[in-house]
Amino acid sequence: MHGLMNRAIQCFLRDTYGAEVWLSVAEQVGIEPEGFEAMMVYPDAITESLLSAASRQLSKPRDALFEDIGIWLVSVERLRRLMRFGGVDYHDFIDTLEELPGRAQLAVPDIGLPAIRVIPHSQGRFTLICQGTVAGFGHVLAGVLRAMADDYGALALIDHVGETARGETIEVELLEARYTEGRAFSLAMPVAAGGL
């Protein structure tokens, strides 16, 4: 898996649970304390053992860990901004989610985000199909969707309903597009946008 994704897991562990937890996980996986290089691609097996070690260390099921990672991703201002480019409101954001992997690929050609299919139903309901190489990736997407609903100020129900042959399925029901003010977003890049 791409270094940026591995690095995101690393930064999530470090930011959420502290350097000690990261160092312990790194040691179990057998990687350097500095962790992953953002611009290198690592074998999927490393990511798998990283996730297993983190799940064990935190006594947290893998699905819940994935969802927390998704929520954390949106807390990184830079990534939140990139997500907000996806649409003017939450409905628009969901509607254009299919384009997200393509957008990411524009910036990092070998990023390897899972393909997302959006099937719109009536009355603000959507079915999302996520086809990733890493099992359970749909839970990351569910976390992102939850955090982005807050960001847009939308009230939405997000439910990861399991996996079929087509991929992981997430049901989204948008109850109210502007439930709260949401967080501000301007297309202009802030002067000091921080990194991961």
């Binding site: 940026l4 290089e37 953002a38 611009m39 990139l82 990411a104 524009l106 910036a107 297309l187 990194g195």
Partner: peptide, 24 residues
């Protein structure tokens, strides 16, 4: 235009990560 802005920001983020790599 919005895709251009998106790309500009995404590239800035990637370049920052890369310059970190170069330093290391």
């Amino acid at each position: 235009a919005v895709e251009l802005l998106y790309l500009h920001e995404a590239k800035s983020a990637v370049m920052d990560e890369l310059s970190g790599l170069n330093t290391r």
